[in-house]
């Protein structure tokens, strides 16, 4: 954090200002740390690049990415509660069909796997099987906190702490469950990622998102005592 910023100079948090690039470019700020989300999935090199190595297929890749990102077919893979919100997002109120997203039951013909719900160790093998059945190019969205890192079941004996232990993930959507708007936001981010990956090629660096400079004075440190088991007995209701 740049602490020498005067509070009145640094902008307060404006929603959307820290993750949307200015003028189409991400702000590189390596001294603030790498807040990237990982490389995730990258489509395999296309036929031309495999057949004739060294050929640069610039605009063709971008055109293909444009087509792919606007018709992402998702695998119907609702595991738990997030599936209900995923269904709500597909339905008429928050329509996903307007993004070209169609939910398709077969893994052989789908592009995106939205892992919605808790990944249990018993289910890990089927997930791996399904992921491998999906043809390239494919992407994975981890929806909800259970798929991101285990969520509310982080101490359980039978839960995999996040689906990224099993398959590479492109976009993580936090929430329990994430709102339909959050899922749409995640899909839009995936679309941006698809376009960006095509533009910058398979060796592109993952994006670094600058952090907002929030004034540090005046912030109150949270009380770090553990309240479990202590009861002041004053009879106050929560």
């Amino acid at each position: 954090m740049a602490l020498d910023n005067k509070p009145q100079d640094a902008p307060l948090f404006v929603p959307g200002s820290w993750d949307r690039p200015k003028a189409g470019k991400f702000i590189d700020a390596p001294e603030q740390g790498d807040t990237s989300t990982g490389r995730g999935n990258r489509p395999a090199a296309n036929l031309l690049q495999r057949g004739v190595p060294g050929v640069i297929t610039g605009k063709l890749d971008e055109l293909a990415a444009l087509a792919r990102k606007n018709s992402l077919w998702t695998l119907t893979f609702g595991l738990a509660c997030c599936a209900i919100e995923m269904m709500s997002t597909h339905m008429s109120h928050h329509d996903l069909d307007r993004f070209g997203v169609v939910t398709w039951p077969s893994p052989r013909q789908s592009d995106v796997m939205i892992v919605a719900g808790t990944v249990v160790k018993k289910m890990a093998d089927p997930i791996r099987l399904l992921y491998e059945q999906m043809p390239d190019p494919k992407w994975v969205i981890a929806m909800g906190s259970c798929a991101t890192n285990g969520g509310p079941y982080y101490r359980s004996y039978s839960v995999v702490m996040g689906v990224d232990h099993i398959i590479p993930v492109d976009v993580y959507i936090p929430g329990c469950p994430p709102r339909p708007e959050a899922l749409m936001d995640g899909l839009i981010k995936l679309q941006e990622k698809i376009q960006r990956d095509a533009k910058e090629g398979p060796n592109a660096k993952p994006p670094v998102i600058a952090q907002a400079e929030v004034p540090q004075e005046g912030l109150v440190e949270p009380d770090s005592t553990d309240n479990a088991g202590e009861d002041d007995g004053t009879g106050q209701t929560s």
Binding site: G150, R155, S156, Y157, S158, V159, V160, H165, I166
Partner: peptide, 15 residues
């Protein structure tokens, strides 16, 4: 047997 009290709690194997 995970239901028993003697089964360790707070323990998970990173899969």
């Amino acid at each position: 047997y995970p239901g028993l009290k003697s089964f360790p709690f707070n323990d998970y194997n990173e899969f």
